[in-house]
Structure formats: C-alpha cells, structure tokens
C-alpha cells in the first residue's frame, strides 16, 4: 500500500494518459459524456413515460438519472478496467511497478465522467424544481461506496482477464443482466412488492441497487438511506475489496508472463 502511495504521481500520469488517449481521436471529445446519457434518458422517457406508462413517477427524468448515472459509471469502469492490464501490456512487460496502479488509474480516469453527469443531474434537479436539502450530503458517501465496490470488481476482473481471456465477454453479459436487474427505470419498491422476500434480499445485495435506492431517497424524498439495505451494500462492497485485493496480489506476479 505504501508503494502505491510512492507511485501517486504515476497514477496521475496514467489517468491523464487514459483521458487523453480516449478523446484524442474524437472531435466532440468530452461532450460525449453528456450526449450519451441524454440520448439514453430520452429513450427511457419515451419507453417508460409514454409507451409503457407503468412508472408514472413524479420527476421521472431525475428519477431515471439517479438510476442511470451510477449504473453508467459502474459499467464504464468495469468494462475499461477488465481489459486494462492487457491494454497496458507494453509498460507491464518492460517495467517493474505495482500492477495495482493500472486498474486503479483506469477506474479513477472515469471519475471525470461521473462528475460531468452529476452536473447534468443537478441541472435537471434545478429545472424540475426539486428543493436542494441537507439530505444531498448523503450523495458523496453513496458514490464513495460505489467507487469502492467498483475498485473491488476492477481488481478481480482485470487480473482474471489476463489468465482467462473469456472474462471480458462474461463481464459484458453480466453488465447487460445488471442493467435489467438494477432498479434503473423502475423503483426498488416495485421489486419489493413483486418479488418473494428471499429474491428481494438477493436483488438488494447488489451494491448498485443499494446506492441507487439511497440516492433516490436523498434527492427525491429528503430522507436518509434505509439502514439495513445500505449496510448490506457496504458489506458486499467490503467483501469485493477484500477478495479483489487478495486475488490480485496472488496473481499479479505472473501477469507479465501471460501478456
């Protein structure tokens, strides 16, 4: 861990590298970070606000954004970190440094998108006339939990992908499944009402669901997270960090030989 601290400046350079290489060849650059969710938001509003009117939410746009933003961030980070070690094979094979900084910086490089999209969220909050309350202070904590969960998953997926190249495709499938099984365009209370209790517990063991639910309570209902649900999300997050760290440490030694 202290060696990671020593490489702080390297992590920063890797973040800049990811960022520059991601956008150097695009004319609209970082604007994509806003356009993508807007397109998705428009589609979801048309589908679930008009075509299939079974989610007559007040402030439906903000409700959707509070589901989409955490999911998008998760999906972006997990996708990019899964192939991060392979994409950086040039430096891994030729230099010695703690391999952990590769998935770490890949995830941190995506934080800019989260920030931009949160800006979009606040724009919609203001337009919708939702009062900004002290409950909004839960948001940094909620996104911190999500970030930690992502780091755990990133450590697991990145190192597995080196030894088992099918990982990438498995991850993509899981992300698609998660898009439907995470309360993005429906609310967790609907899952609560319509799922058997055991399945609902499983449903909420997904830290994304816990985070989205907590964020909606904070922004839309001016209330703190439901304690037991948020605690479950934190426990699963901690478990992902521990498993990820142990697995990564165990396998990182041989990463260069398999790239």
């Amino acid at each position: 861990m202290e060696s990671i601290h020593k490489f702080k400046y390297t992590v920063w350079n890797l973040i800049l590298k990811d960022f520059k290489t991601q956008y150097r060849n695009m004319s609209l650059g970082v604007l994509w970070s806003v356009l993508n969710p807007l397109v998705m938001l428009g589609v979801l509003i048309i589908v679930f606000g008009y075509i299939n009117r079974n989610a007559p939410q007040e402030n439906f746009a903000v409700f959707l954004l509070l589901g989409m933003i955490p999911y998008n961030f998760f999906s972006l980070c997990v996708n990019s970190s899964t192939s991060s070690l392979i994409n950086n094979s040039q430096i891994i094979k030729k230099m010695s440094f703690p391999r952990l900084i590769i998935p770490l910086s890949t995830v941190l490089a995506q934080v800019i998108h989260l920030i931009i999209q949160l800006g979009l969220l606040f724009l919609f909050v203001i337009i919708s006339g939702i009062p900004i309350t002290l409950s909004f202070l839960w948001l940094p904590l909620i996104f911190m939990v999500e970030l930690l969960f992502i780091l755990g998953v990133a450590m697991i997926c990145s190192v597995l992908d080196v030894f088992f190249r099918d990982t990438k495709y498995i991850v993509q499938s899981i992300l698609t499944v998660l898009f439907w099984l995470t309360p993005i365009f429906y609310s967790a209370s609907r899952a609560h009402d319509n799922l058997p209790n055991l399945l609902y517990k499983l449903f909420m063991a997904n830290p994304l669901a816990g985070c989205i639910e907590a964020a909606r309570r904070a922004v839309l209902f001016n209330s703190p997270p439901e304690v037991d649900l948020f605690v479950i999300a934190c426990i699963v997050t901690l478990a992902s960090l521990i498993i990820g760290f142990i697995l990564f440490r165990k396998l990182e030694k041989n990463v260069a030989d398999y790239l």
């Binding site: 490489f7 390297t10 520059k20 430096i91």
Partner: peptide, 13 residues
C-alpha cells in the same frame, strides 16, 4: 507525455 509516464513509472518524482 511518454517521457512523463515512463519516467514516473521508473520511480522519478
């Protein structure tokens, strides 16, 4: 940019 990245990976401050 590569100098920055490479030198910092080599442990330079």
């Amino acid at each position: 940019e590569n100098i920055l990245l490479n030198a910092s990976l080599s442990g330079l401050s």
